[in-house]
Design a protein around this nucleic acid. Structure first.
Length: 379
DNA sequence: TTCCCTTTGAAGATC
DNA sequence: GATCTTCAAAGGGAA
């Protein structure tokens, strides 16, 4: 179990494999970033438009498969780079260099760090919880719904057999209620100007190649939260009982999920008809760093580029993600770590395996189909 | 109506 | 231990 890593390392990446990060240097990275962002949209659009053309040309480097492989290679390099970075971050935390701006208003004070021996508090946890930054309120609010004592593991919304799983051992929070008390000041900072879930907060522009360099500090706009603003109103805005965890969704499709989100606070208790349904609610995986980043930046990219297709947007976001500085990325890694910690505490018996098989078509099948097609084209 | 696309990262599965 | 597979979000587009 990775969570049980000993040796003081956190889950941000194993430190045992230190492939030297090809330190193009942050300067180079930044220099490339401008060029990068300017070409983002053009590249994406070009790749989309020329996709079929590219597929037919085996000599073209930018084919989808090549792109994917390239990203994977890059990913590995980056992953190591980030591990390196995280070490740096850890080293600098005490020195005050790394004071994550992302965690102001973070509702979970003194979250015990399971990645440290004896459940001791990690320095980052401590600082993250207490430091308040001017530009802060941020995506931390994405954790807010976790911060609800309705989501304790004994909640009736949880599958009853979760604790039956052998081999899954997760420690319980000592006092989850302490984490769930939402400081009104923290969440109340979200202004009405903050866009929510895809609503543009920037003037629509034609996005001529992303001329704006990616801001070094996280913007205060965009959708910081995984959950509607109504969820971040603090205790007064919450139903006292039965509010399901946002990670819990009905076992069916997306539309139902959306409706579920809309009603989740209006109807904390399932209707009698639902009682007949034996289906257990699905507890979703906690979001990783990149997912958190995407949630936050998606609206901005949409506004800048007037793109709507998530595939294209995600390509841009992937590039921007790599263009982020280590410090900027560290914010999201730390946030993701908190998410996982909280998720672990809320659902000690949950396993990612629980959601395996939810997708209709296995990626493997598709890749095999694709390979067979490619073999025809390339042979 | 359902699934695909596309991204990165985490975690489980497999060898 | 290394590698592979699946899922997490998002929403337009295709089937």
């Amino acid at each position: 179990m990775p969570q049980l890593n000993s040796g003081g390392g956190d889950d941000l990446g194993a430190n045992d494999e230190m492939i030297p990060f090809q330190d193009e240097g942050d300067q180079d990275e930044k220099i490339q970033e401008n060029t990068f962002t300017e070409r983002d949209l053009a590249d994406v659009k070009t790749s989309l438009v020329n996709e079929s053309e590219i597929n037919q040309n085996p000599n073209t480097v930018a084919g989808p498969g090549a792109v994917r492989r390239g990203h994977q290679d890059e990913q590995r390099v980056y992953s190591d780079k980030h591990r390196d970075h995280l070490d740096d971050v850890s080293k600098h935390q005490d020195g005050g260099m790394y004071k994550p701006s992302a965690y102001s208003g973070y509702p979970f004070l003194m979250l015990p760090d399971p990645y440290l021996p004896n459940g001791s508090m990690s320095p980052s946890s401590n600082k993250v919880s207490v430091v308040q930054q001017p530009h802060g309120m941020h995506h931390l609010t994405s954790l807010l719904p976790y911060g609800n004592d309705h989501f304790n593991p004994s909640s009736p919304h949880l599958p009853t057999d979760m604790s039956q799983k052998p081999g899954v051992h997760r420690h319980q929070s000592q006092d989850l209620s302490g984490f769930y008390s939402l400081p009104p000041g923290g969440v109340g900072q979200i202004t009405s100007s903050v866009g929510w879930q895809g609503q543009p907060v920037y003037p629509i522009s034609s996005c001529p190649g992303f001329r704006q360099p990616y801001p070094s500090s996280l913007p205060s706009s965009s959708s910081y939260s995984r959950f509607p603003p109504s969820l971040v109103l603090g205790p007064s805005g919450m139903h006292p009982t039965g509010i399901p965890h946002p990670a819990i969704v009905p076992p069916t499709g997306k539309q139902e999920h959306d409706q579920y989100e809309r009603n989740m606070y209006a109807k904390p208790h399932p209707e009698p008809k639902r009682e007949k349904e034996p289906k257990k609610p699905v507890i979703k995986k906690p979001l990783n760093a990149f997912m958190l980043y995407m949630k936050e930046m998606r609206a901005k990219v949409i506004a800048e580029c007037t793109l709507k297709e998530s595939a294209a947007i995600n390509q841009i976001l992937g590039r921007r993600w790599h263009a982020l500085t280590r410090e900027e990325q560290a914010k999201y890694y730390e946030l993701a770590r908190k998410e996982r910690q909280l998720h672990m505490q809320l659902y000690p018996s949950w396993s990612a395996r629980d959601n395996y098989g939810k997708k209709k078509r296995r990626k493997r099948e598709k890749q095999q189909d694709s390979n067979s097609d490619n073999s025809l084209d390339c042979s």
